Amino acid sequence: DLSALRVEEVQNVINAMQKILECPICLELIKEPVSTKCDHIFCKFCMLKLLNQKKGPSQCPLCKNDITKRSLQESTRFSQLVEELLKIICAFQLDTGLEYANSYNFAKKENNSPEHLKDEVSIIQSMGYRNRAKRLLQSEPENPSLQETSLSVQLSNLGTVRTLRTKQRIQPQRTSVYIELGSDSSEDTVNKATYCSVGDQELLQITPQGTRDEISLDSAKKAACEFSETDVTNTEHHQPSNNDLNTTEKRAAERHPEKYQGSSVSNLHVEPCGTNTHASSLQHENSSLLLTKDRMNVEKAEF
Results as ranks from 00 to 15, higher is better:
Ser3Tyr: 09
Ala4Asp: 04
Arg6His: 11
Glu8Gln: 13
Glu8Lys: 09
Glu9Ala: 00
Glu9Asp: 04
Gln11His: 03
Gln11Pro: 14
Val13Phe: 03
Val13Asp: 03
Val13Ala: 01
Ile14Met: 01
Met17Ile: 06
Lys19Glu: 11
Pro24Leu: 14
Pro24Thr: 09
Ile25Leu: 14
Ile25Val: 05
Cys26Gly: 15
Leu27Pro: 12
Glu28Lys: 11
Glu28Asp: 10
Leu29Val: 04
Glu32Ala: 10
Glu32Gln: 07
Pro33Leu: 14
Thr36Pro: 01
Cys38Arg: 15
Cys38Phe: 15
Cys38Tyr: 15
Asp39Asn: 04
Asp39Glu: 05
His40Asn: 10
His40Leu: 10
Ile41Thr: 01
Cys43Ser: 14
Lys44Asn: 06
Cys46Phe: 15
Met47Val: 12
Leu48Arg: 11
Leu50Val: 06
Asn52Lys: 08
Asn52Ile: 12
Gln53His: 08
Lys55Glu: 04
Gly56Trp: 01
Gly56Arg: 10
Pro57Leu: 10
Pro57His: 04
Gln59Lys: 09
Cys60Tyr: 15
Pro61Arg: 03
Cys63Gly: 14
Asp66Gly: 04
Asp66Ala: 12
Arg70Thr: 03
Leu72Arg: 12
Gln73Arg: 10
Ser75Cys: 03
Phe78Cys: 03
Gln80His: 03
Gln80Lys: 08
Leu81Val: 13
Val82Ala: 08
Glu83Ala: 10
Glu83Val: 08
Leu86Val: 01
Lys87Ile: 00
Ile89Phe: 10
Cys90Arg: 11
Leu94Arg: 13
Asp95Val: 15
Thr96Lys: 13
Gly97Asp: 10
Leu98Ser: 03
Glu99Val: 02
Asn105Ser: 12
Phe106Tyr: 03
Phe106Ser: 14
Lys108Ile: 15
Lys108Thr: 00
Lys109Arg: 10
Glu110Asp: 12
Ser126Cys: 08
Ser126Ile: 12
Met127Leu: 05
Arg130Gly: 12
Arg130Ile: 11
Asn131Tyr: 09
Arg132His: 02
Arg132Ser: 05
Leu137Gln: 05
Leu137Pro: 06
Ser139Gly: 06
Glu140Gly: 05
Glu140Ala: 11
Pro141Ser: 07
Glu142Gly: 06
Glu142Lys: 13
Pro144Ser: 06
Ser145Phe: 02
Leu146Val: 14
Ser150Arg: 14
Ser152Asn: 12
Val153Gly: 14
Ser156Phe: 03
Leu158His: 11
Thr160Ala: 03
Gln173Lys: 04
Tyr178His: 13
Ser183Tyr: 00
Ser186Phe: 00
Glu187Gly: 02
Val190Ile: 09
Ala193Thr: 11
Thr194Pro: 03
Val198Ala: 00
Gly199Val: 01
Glu202Val: 00
Glu202Lys: 12
Leu203Met: 04
Ile206Asn: 07
Thr211Ala: 05
Arg212Thr: 07
Asp213Asn: 09
Glu214Lys: 15
Ile215Phe: 00
Ser216Cys: 02
Leu217Phe: 03
Asp218Tyr: 03
Ser219Tyr: 02
Ser219Phe: 00
Lys222Arg: 07
Ala223Gly: 02
Ala224Val: 09
Cys225Trp: 15
Cys225Tyr: 01
Glu226Gly: 01
Glu229Gly: 00
Val232Glu: 06
Thr233Ile: 06
Thr233Lys: 13
Ser241Gly: 00
Asn243Ile: 15
Thr247Ile: 02
Thr247Asn: 02
Thr248Ser: 12
Thr248Asn: 06
Glu249Val: 01
Glu249Asp: 07
Ala252Glu: 11
Ala253Thr: 10
Arg255Gly: 08
Glu258Gln: 10
Glu258Lys: 04
Tyr260His: 05
Tyr260Asn: 07
Gln261Lys: 11
Gln261Glu: 12
Gly262Ser: 13
Ser263Arg: 01
Ser263Asn: 14
Ser264Pro: 14
Val265Ala: 03
Ser266Pro: 05
His269Tyr: 01
His269Leu: 15
Cys273Tyr: 08
His278Gln: 03
Ala279Thr: 14
Leu282Ser: 09
His284Asn: 05
Glu285Lys: 11
Asn286Lys: 11
Leu291Pro: 13
Asp294Val: 13
Arg295Ile: 03
Glu302Lys: 09
